[in-house]
């Protein structure tokens, strides 16, 4: 009996290890499964995390910008988080993935070769002169009456973030640094937005980093907005990005250029027709339209500029979130000279 069990466990271990070894030796799946060339019958599959800024995809479709650019079909797949989207784009499961800038640089630093196709959301050129709360869909909230009055006050306190070493943590760290504090002294807690709001109410955490529509909920519950860290960190330009595997882009540049061109047209339309864009956003996120209107207005930059993105790259290094700048060059952006 024991011998048989030993053999069975050995066989199972063998199968598992050989599978792993085989995977280790394999290359990424062959990209470009969808129809190739922006000749009017090109299909593009996109991986997103279901944000308000995805309204641009609906605009591009409904206004006919995709069709005009030669893209006949758009398949939108919702993924759990940006790393999952990047893994999917690498494996060829999707053509284009949405990712915030921070996971993008993390991926580049770990040797994942990605190309920026287009911005996916961000801030206007004069963002620093505007009211940050109206632009930034992220916010750090403290309970009403808290003794924390500036980002520096977060030193030594419990601050919840949706994920460790991701965009919210990095941007808050920069806000603390700019305020003269030491972000390494913060006790970061990973909490989903609902748990974060509840923990804030019960005093289990001192501050919560939230994304719209939970920012509106936090305000409605009497919490105070301490900082809008997105604008502080990025200052202007692209924040969210549409990215693809560089190999895939090299194989079929027309398809990605067509996608970019259609999206730029959608951005122009969305920036001018915010009510309509918010209507789409409400449908995508399932959030009440009135609630969405109370929060930050989505802005789509028309271009992903190297200097804007590299500024974020540099700040991540200065904050210690990466050992050196990620290998990001001008040619990492599709069509950049």
């Amino acid at each position: 009996m024991n011998t048989r069990r030993t053999f069975l466990s050995v066989a199972a271990a063998a199968a598992l290890s050989l599978g792993l070894a085989a995977c280790g030796g394999s290359k990424a799946a062959d990209p470009g499964e969808s129809q190739s060339g922006a000749s009017g019958n090109t299909a593009v599959s996109v991986g997103t995390i279901g944000l308000a800024s995805d309204a641009s995809l609906r605009i591009a479709e409904d206004q006919g910008y995709l069709r005009e650019a030669g893209i006949s079909g758009l398949e939108v797949k919702t993924v759990a988080n940006p790393p999952a989207a990047i893994a999917a784009v690498q494996s060829g499961d999707i053509d284009v993935a949405y990712t915030p800038s921070v996971p993008f640089f993390n991926a580049l630093n770990q040797g994942i070769d990605l190309t920026v196709i287009a911005p996916a959301d961000g801030y206007p050129e004069n963002a620093l002169e505007m009211d940050a709360a109206e632009l930034d869909d992220t916010g750090v909230y403290v309970p009403g009456g808290s003794d924390i009055s500036s980002p520096r006050g977060l030193e030594g306190r419990k601050v919840s973030v949706p994920a460790r070493k991701a965009q919210m943590e990095v941007t808050i760290s920069e806000a603390i640094r700019q305020d003269g504090g030491d972000p390494s002294k913060v006790q970061w807690m990973v909490l989903d937005p609902a748990s974060a709001l509840d923990s804030l109410k019960n005093g289990r955490i001192d501050a919560a980093a939230l994304v719209s529509p939970f920012t509106q909920q936090a305000g409605a519950q009497g919490n105070t907005l301490l900082a809008s860290p997105g604008v502080t960190f990025f200052e202007k330009g692209a924040v969210g990005l549409w990215v693809a595997g560089s190999d895939q882009v090299e194989q079929d540049p027309e398809k990605y250029e067509a996608f970019r061109d259609a999206m730029v047209q959608a951005y122009e339309y969305g920036n001018e027709n915010t009510d309509e864009a918010q209507g789409y956003a409400a449908e995508i996120t399932g959030v009440d339209l009135e609630t969405l209107r109370q929060g930050a207005t989505t802005y789509w930059p028309l271009e992903a500029k190297f200097e804007d993105l590299n500024r974020a790259n540099q700040k991540m290094t200065e904050l210690g979130y990466q050992p050196q700048n990620a290998p990001f060059a001008e040619d990492s952006i599709l069509g950049a000279e």
Binding site: V10, S26, G111
Partner: peptide, 27 residues
């Protein structure tokens, strides 16, 4: 068998993944 089989499997894994260029499946 208990010691040798896993050792052989590890050796196979080591060899097969030695030249891996796939970021998601390092050596």
């Amino acid at each position: 068998l208990a010691v040798g089989t896993p050792t052989l499997l590890l050796a196979a894994w080591w060899t097969a993944s030695a030249d891996s260029s796939n970021t998601f499946f390092p050596s």
